[in-house]
């Protein structure tokens, strides 16, 4: 017999044996797969929550700005000087200038149905509103400095008001929530992983016990230890593979279901969960497969090893 033929025969029989083990053990195998799906799903949910909170924080940070309103009578030259000054600050990312006319127009539009306001505007000569600078900082923590800088005596008189909406509390709340979820999530993952490993161990012990007669005969007639052992370790690998397949399908369904539901929280823009999924699913599956295979192989080897010596 050619050595390759021998090898292929052996591999094929080992795979067939491992399948038979899994099938004969179907119920307990199903319970184990369910537990492993729970492990992977809790990891996936945590990853999705992470992606979602990052997106939420990003969204909130994007909406932080300082709006500096000029007094209506500030001259164009001074306004331009003030704008250049603000732009020259190293902390400033971007300054948008909104002329008094634009401000008035926007104001009119947003109060189009309010007759009292319309009448009031009509009574006033010219434009009662001042131009605005919308200032975005490079970093969220720079806003305090920018507000300070607007107090510069050279320009302070030009400004009517400076409003600053920093979403500080919202960001802190989201961050805090994310931290809590990560903590509880990690604890749950650890617990589920422990259960998953125990169940896998138990499943393989049962599999070995069920096949004790065959194992005895195999050893008696000179089957190699690898031949006796490998089907059981492969059984663990089958269980892990099923779990990865199922949990990935669940993950995809979950993501496509939740993403539109989160949209209102982002004022209609993309919550990014789907995007995160599409960008990372391959990596996630690869890492989870590697991790779970490593764990299951270790557990299976232990379960079978102690029995077979």
């Amino acid at each position: 017999m050619k050595p390759e033929a021998h090898f292929i025969n052996t591999c094929w029989r080992i795979i067939v044996h491992s399948w038979q083990h899994t099938i004969r053990n179907a119920w307990i195998a199903a319970a184990t797969v369910a537990m492993l799906v729970l492990v992977l799903s809790s990891v996936n949910v945590l990853l999705a929550v992470q992606a979602f909170t990052n997106q939420a924080i990003q969204h909130l940070e994007d909406h932080i700005d300082v709006i500096a309103t000029f007094t209506p009578n500030a001259s164009d030259t001074l306004i331009q000087q003030a704008r250049s000054y603000v732009l020259s600050l190293p902390q400033v990312q971007d300054v948008t200038f909104i002329s008094a006319d634009q401000v008035l127009q926007t104001f009119r539009q947003s109060h189009a149905s309010d007759t009292a306001v319309q009448a009031g505007l009509h009574d006033v000569d010219g434009n009662p509103l001042g131009a605005e600078l919308v200032i975005k900082a490079k970093h969220t923590e720079d806003y305090a400095f920018i507000l300070q800088a607007l107090q510069n005596p050279q320009y302070a008189s030009l400004f009517d008001t400076s409003t600053y909406d920093d979403h500080h509390e919202a960001i802190a709340a989201v961050q805090n929530l994310a931290d809590q979820i990560r903590l509880i999530g990690s604890a749950l993952i650890a617990l589920f992983t422990l259960f998953g490993m125990l169940l896998t161990f138990n499943t393989l012990r049962v599999a070995v016990y069920t096949h004790r007669e065959e194992i005895g005969i195999m050893r008696l007639v000179g089957a190699s230890s690898a031949f006796v052992r490998t089907p059981f370790i492969l059984e663990g690998i089958w269980l892990a593979s099923f779990a990865i397949l199922l949990s990935s399908i669940l993950f995809a369904c979950g993501v496509w279901w939740i993403n539109p539901l989160l949209r209102p929280l982002f004022e209609g823009s993309d919550p990014g969960v789907t995007t995160f999924f599409l960008q990372n699913i391959l990596t996630i599956i690869l890492v989870e497969t590697a991790g779970l295979y490593a764990l299951v192989t270790t557990v299976s080897t232990l379960a079978v090893g102690t029995y077979l010596r």
Partner: peptide
């Protein structure tokens, strides 16, 4: 080897029981 502890596998036929000893050492069909 013939030991009393290692009987025939009840779910396999006579042929399969004997073939089993060859299968597990990788013999060809």
């Amino acid at each position: 080897v013939i030991f009393q502890d290692y009987k025939l596998l009840p779910k396999k036929s006579v042929f399969e029981n004997v073939a089993f000893a060859l299968e597990v050492i990788g013999a060809s069909r």
